[in-house]
Design a protein around this nucleic acid. Structure first.
Length: 841
RNA sequence: GCCCCCAUAGCCCAAUCGGCAGAGGCAGCUGACUUAAAAUCAGCACAGUCUGGGUUCGAGUCCCAGUGGGGGCACCA
C-alpha cells in the first residue's frame, strides 16, 4: 500500500490539541479524501500474502443509492475489512450491471440515448458509494455496458455457440405485451412479468437459447460443495428449480391410421413404472404437434375446436388445481406394452407440451390428475398398488403412497420401491423402455427484442445461414445514433430499424447479409463479471487465467436472496462452461454466500406506491455515514430484515460519539506497554477480541456491535471511576475499539486511531493478538441447584475438584434446609466448577 | 397440496456442550448537571422463552403434536 505524503493522520497526530467534540461532518471531510489519495483499498499486484476475494453483488444504476444498497454494502464490507486486518491481500471490487430496460424507457421518455441516463446515474451512485466508505478497489471498476466489457460477453456467446451451447429454436415462449419482449422462465412469476407485473402470454417465436439443461446434473450435484457455506434455502430453491426426477421412458405402439399407414409409437415419461398395469388410457398435450399427428379424421375438427378454446385460457386459470378437467378423445388407440390392451388416446391441457415427451400414460388409481380426468370422462380406474386405503374410484382420491403391488403379473406382491426397480428391468429386457431422468429446468431463453444490451454477434446470410462474427471484429457495437422514439417497443428489436447497422457482409462468403437484431438478456452480463474483476483492463483476453488461479473462487459473496435462482444459477452455469473451455480450474464460482435481508419501513417493503420510502441521503446527512452503517449492522443478524421504524440511527450516533470520546480521553503516550495496565480491563478487552473473532466467523455482526458497546462501557467506567485515563489498559482498550469499529464505522474509527497517535490507516493495522493468559479466570460463580432449581451460589476457584465442590455445596445452610425439607439426598450431579445439582427425595 | 425457516421483555435482539433466562440497544422511569432544555453521566423497572405433551437430575436449547408468522415449489406425469 502506498502512503500519501503529508497524511491527514500525521497532521491530526501532530496537532497538540485534539478536536473538542465529535463532529460527523468534519470527520467525514477529513478521511474521505485521505483514503482516495492513499489508495488504501487498491490491490497491489506484487503482494504475495494469502488472498481473499470478497464480493458484493454489483448494483444496477437505477437513480441514486437507496437504503437497500446501504444495508447490503455495510454488511459486505465487514468480511472485506476484517480479512484486511487479519493480514490478507483482499480484492473487494465494485462495478455496475448497467445494461437493461429502465435506461431504454428513460431514453424514450427524454428523447435521449440510454447511455446518457445510465452513465449519469452511475456517476451519482459512484459518488454516494465513495461517501459511504466501502473499502472497495476503485481502480478495477467496470460497467457491463462498456464496449470493453460487452465485447467479452459477445466473445463468450461465440464460445458457447461453437460448443453447441447457444442455439436457436422455434418454440412457444413467454411474451410480455407491455415490455414487448420475450422472457426467460425464471423471469415469469405467477404468470406475470417479473419486471412490470403484466400478464405474460405465449407466442411462437424463433429465439436464442443457452443449453443450461445439459449442465443440470452438475448444477445439482455440485451443490454438495456448497452445503453449509450457502444458505440452505438458496440451495433448496435451486434444487426445486432444477427439479430432477428419475423414472422411466415407456414406448407405446399405436394402432395404424385409417389408410393403413404406420403411426409412430408414443413415448411417455413416468416416475411410477410400477403402476404400469394400472394404465387405462393415454393423454397427450393438446397444444403439442403430437396431438395433431395422432388424431383421426373423424375427431380432427373436435380437436381444433378444443385447441382454439384453450387459447383464451390464461396460464393462471390453466394452472389452478381445482379446475374441471377437459379434453378430447383423438379416436385412436395405443397398445399396452405388457398386456396388449387397447388404450384410448386423449388430448388435454393438463399435460404439458414441454415437459418430458408431452404425453403421459394415465394411471387414474394412483395419480390424482389422471383420476379426475377419468372420472370426468368415464374412463376405467384400476388399482394396482394396495395401500390399504379406500378404492380411488369410490373416494375420488388417488392413492400415491407405499403399498403392495396387485393385479400386476410381472411384479405381483412386491413393495413400491422394489416394483419400480423390477419394472425398469422388465421394460429394458423387452426393449419397451429404459430408466430416464427428467428435469423441470428448461433451456435459458437469452435473446431480447430490446436495444440496451449486448448485440448477439451473429450474421444471417441467405446462403451460409447462421454465421458467427469473427472474434477479431468484436465488439459488435450498439449504434450511437438511435434515440428517443426510435427505441420504442414494436415487437421486434429496435436494432432492426437501424438499416445501416443491420446490413453486413457475410463473414463466410462476403455476400450481403443481415445482423442478428436481438440483444442478450442482462443476466448474461452478470454471469461472469466476477471473473472480469480479476483483470478488467485486459484487451487481449477475457481475463488472465493465472489471475483466476490466484483469486478465485470468490471467498465470500454477498447479496439479496431475490437472486437465489436467476443470477446464482446462471453464474454457476457460466462458470462450469468456462471451466470446460479450459480457462479456469474450479467449477463453482462462490465458495460462501451470505444473503442480507431487506430494509423495511413499518413492516413493509419501501415503495413509492406506499409512500413509506426513507431517503438514504437524508439519513446520511442527519446522522452521518457511520451511524447509518452501524444501525444497519446492529439492528439484526445480517440475513434478517431491518425495519427502519424499529431502529435508532440517533442511538448509533450516540454510541459512536461515546466511543470517540474514549479515544479522546486517553492520556497515556502512544506505544505505552499495555501489560502495566489494570488487569480487569485488560481481561475485558482480550475477551472481547476473542469473542469478536468467533462472532465474525459466525457472521453474527449484530452481536459484534453489542460486544463492542460493552467494551466501551467498561473503558468509560475505568476512566471515570477506576484507574483513570492514563492507565495503559485504557489505551489498549481504546485501540482495540478503534480496530473493531473500523469494520463498520470507518470514519470514526480512523479518527480515533489518529487521536491515539497512529499513522493511518486503521484499515491496514494489525489485528490484536489475544493474550490467552488474560482469558483465564481464577474464580467462577458455581450454581447450586436442588432438583434443578437454583437455590444458592458459590464463589469457587476454577480448578476446584468435583468432590470439593460437592462438599462445599452440600454444606451450604440454604441447601441443607432444602435437603431436609425434601427428604434427604438421593443423588448429586456435579459439573465442576460451574454447577451442582442436588436431587432429593 | 408438498417442502423449508422462524417464534425469548412494549420494540429490535443475545444466551458454545442441555446447566444462573439477559449481553447490547430503542422506547420508558428516577436522579446528577442546567435558570431551563438539549446533550452527557449515574441508576431503575419490565418477560420465564407461542401452546400441549415427552426425554432428562436439569429443556429457550433435544423429540412429538398443534397454533401463529415468513419463504419456496406446485397439473412436472
Amino acid at each position: 500500500m502506498s502512503n500519501a505524503s503529508g497524511s491527514a493522520a500525521a497532521q491530526s497526530a501532530q496537532a497538540s490539541e485534539k478536536p473538542q467534540q465529535y463532529d460527523v461532518a468534519e470527520i467525514e471531510a477529513r478521511w474521505l479524501p485521505f483514503w482516495e489519495e492513499d489508495g488504501t483499498f487498491e490491490v497491489d499486484p506484487d503482494d504475495t500474502r494469502e488472498r481473499r476475494y470478497v464480493l458484493d453483488m454489483f448494483p444496477y444504476p437505477s437513480g441514486d443509492l437507496h437504503m437497500g444498497h446501504a444495508e447490503a454494502f455495510a454488511i459486505g464490507d465487514i468480511p472485506a475489512r476484517y480479512a484486511r486486518l487479519r493480514g490478507y491481500n483482499v480484492l473487494h471490487p465494485i462495478g455496475w450491471d448497467s445494461f437493461g430496460l429502465p435506461a431504454e424507457n428513460a431514453a424514450i421518455k427524454n428523447d435521449a440515448h440510454p447511455a446518457d441516463w445510465t452513465y449519469t446515474n452511475i456517476d451519482t451512485q459512484a459518488a454516494s458509494f465513495k461517501r459511504y466508505a466501502i473499502s472497495a478497489d476503485w481502480s478495477r471498476r467496470l460497467h457491463t455496458s462498456d464496449e470493453s466489457y460487452y465485447r467479452w460477453t459477445q466473445w463468450l456467446f461465440l464460445q458457447f455457440h461453437r460448443r453447441g451451447l447457444a442455439y436457436r429454436k422455434d418454440s412457444p415462449v413467454n411474451w410480455c405485451p407491455k415490455d414487448q419482449t420475450v422472457l426467460a422462465n425464471e423471469q415469469v412469476v405467477d404468470g406475470a412479468c417479473e419486471r412490470c407485473g403484466t400478464q405474460v402470454t405465449k407466442k411462437a417465436l424463433n429465439q436464442w437459447y443457452f443449453k443450461i439443461t445439459e449442465y443440470a446434473d452438475r448444477l445439482l450435484d455440485d451443490m454438495e460443495q456448497l452445503a453449509g457455506r450457502w444458505p440452505e434455502r438458496v440451495l433448496s430453491m435451486q434444487r426445486n428449480w432444477i427439479g430432477r426426477s428419475t423414472g422411466a421412458t415407456v414406448r407405446y405402439e399405436v394402432e395404424p391410421a385409417e389408410d393403413g399407414a404406420d403411426v409412430e409409437p408414443i413415448e411417455v415419461f413416468t416416475t411410477r413404472p410400477d403402476t404400469l398395469y394400472g394404465v387405462t388410457f393415454m393423454v397427450v398435450a393438446a397444444d403439442a404437434a403430437l396431438a395433431e399427428q395422432l388424431v383421426t379424421e373423424e375427431h380432427r375438427e373436435e380437436l381444433a375446436r378444443y385447441r382454439a378454446a384453450l387459447g383464451s385460457v390464461s396460464d393462471i386459470e390453466r394452472q389452478s388445481a381445482d379446475r374441471e378437467r377437459t379434453g378430447v378423445f383423438l379416436g385412436r388407440y395405443a397398445a399396452h406394452p405388457l398386456t396388449g390392451e387397447r388404450l384410448p388416446i386423449w388430448a388435454s391441457d393438463y399435460v404439458l407440451a414441454d415437459y418430458g415427451t408431452g404425453a403421459v400414460m394415465a394411471v387414474p388409481a394412483h395419480d390424482q390428475r389422471d383420476l379426475e380426468f377419468a372420472r370426468t370422462m368415464g374412463l376405467d380406474v384400476r388399482v394396482v398398488v394396495d395401500t390399504g386405503e379406500e378404492d380411488p374410484a369410490v373416494s375420488g382420491t388417488a392413492t400415491a403412497g407405499e403399498g403392495t403391488l396387485v393385479n400386476s403379473p410381472a411384479w405381483e406382491g412386491l413393495g413400491k420401491q422394489e416394483a419400480i426397480a423390477r419394472a425398469v428391468d422388465v421394460l429394458a429386457e423387452r426393449q419397451l423402455g429404459q430408466a430416464t431422468v427428467n428435469y423441470r429446468l428448461r433451456d435459458w431463453l437469452l435473446s431480447r427484442q430490446r436495444f440496451w444490451g449486448a448485440p448477439i454477434p451473429i450474421v444471417h446470410c441467405p446462403s451460409c445461414g447462421e454465421v458467427p462474427v469473427p472474434e477479431d471484429e468484436l465488439p459488435v457495437r450498439l449504434p450511437a445514433d438511435l434515440r428517443g422514439e426510435q427505441l420504442a417497443p414494436k415487437g421486434q428489436s429496435p436494432l432492426a430499424a437501424a438499416s445501416d447497422w443491420v446490413t453486413a457482409d457475410c463473414p463466410s462468403c462476403g455476400e450481403p447479409a443481415t445482423r442478428d437484431t436481438d440483444t442478450m438478456d442482462t443476466f448474461v452480463d452478470s454471469s461472469w463479471y466476477f471473473l472480469r474483476f480479476l483483470d478488467p483492463q485486459n484487451d487481449e483476453r477475457i481475463f488472465d487465467s493465472s489471475e483466476a488461479d490466484r483469486w478465485m473462487p470468490v471467498d465470500q459473496y454477498v447479496g439479496g436472496v431475490e437472486h437465489a435462482i436467476l443470477h446464482l444459477l446462471y453464474a454457476r452455469f457460466f462458470t462450469k462452461v468456462i471451466h470446460d473451455m479450459g480457462l479456469i480450474r474450479f467449477d463453482e464460482p462462490f465458495k460462501a454466500l451470505m444473503n442480507q435481508g431487506q430494509v423495511l419501513n413499518g413492516g413493509k417493503a419501501m415503495s413509492k406506491s406506499l409512500g413509506n420510502g426513507v431517503d438514504l441521503g437524508e439519513q446520511l446527512d442527519a446522522y452521518g455515514v457511520d451511524a447509518v452503517r452501524l444501525t444497519m449492522v446492529f439492528a439484526s443478524p445480517p440475513e434478517d430484515d431491518v425495519d427502519w421504524a424499529d431502529v435508532s440511527p440517533a442511538g448509533s450516533a450516540k454510541f459512536l460519539a461515546r466511543a470517540w470520546r474514549v479515544a479522546q480521553d486517553v492520556a497515556s503516550a502512544p506505544g505505552t506497554d499495555p501489560t502495566s495496565g489494570t488487569a480487569a480491563l485488560r481481561a475485558v478487552t482480550h475477551r472481547t477480541v476473542h469473542e469478536v473473532e468467533q462472532l465474525l466467523e459466525d457472521q453474527k455482526f449484530n452481536v459484534v456491535v453489542a460486544r463492542l458497546m460493552e467494551l466501551v462501557n467498561a473503558i468509560r467506567k475505568e476512566i471515570d471511576s477506576g484507574a483513570g485515563a492514563a492507565d495503559a489498559a485504557v489505551r489498549e482498550g481504546a485501540e482495540v475499539t478503534a480496530q473493531i469499529l473500523s469494520l463498520v464505522a470507518p470514519y470514526t474509527a480512523e479518527d480515533m486511531w489518529a487521536m491515539l497517535g497512529h499513522e493511518a490507516s486503521v484499515a491496514n493495522s494489525t489485528w490484536p493478538t489475544v493474550d490467552e493468559a488474560l482469558l483465564v479466570e481464577d474464580t467462577v460463580t458455581a450454581v447450586v441447584q436442588v432438583k434443578g432449581k437454583l437455590r444458592d451460589k458459590l464463589e469457587v476457584s476454577t480448578d476446584i475438584t468435583a468432590d470439593d465442590l460437592e462438599a462445599r455445596a452440600l454444606a451450604l445452610p440454604k441447601i441443607q434446609k432444602y435437603i431436609e425439607a425434601d427428604g434427604g439426598v438421593r443423588k448429586v450431579i456435579v459439573r465442576a466448577p460451574k454447577l451442582v445439582n442436588v436431587v432429593t427425595g
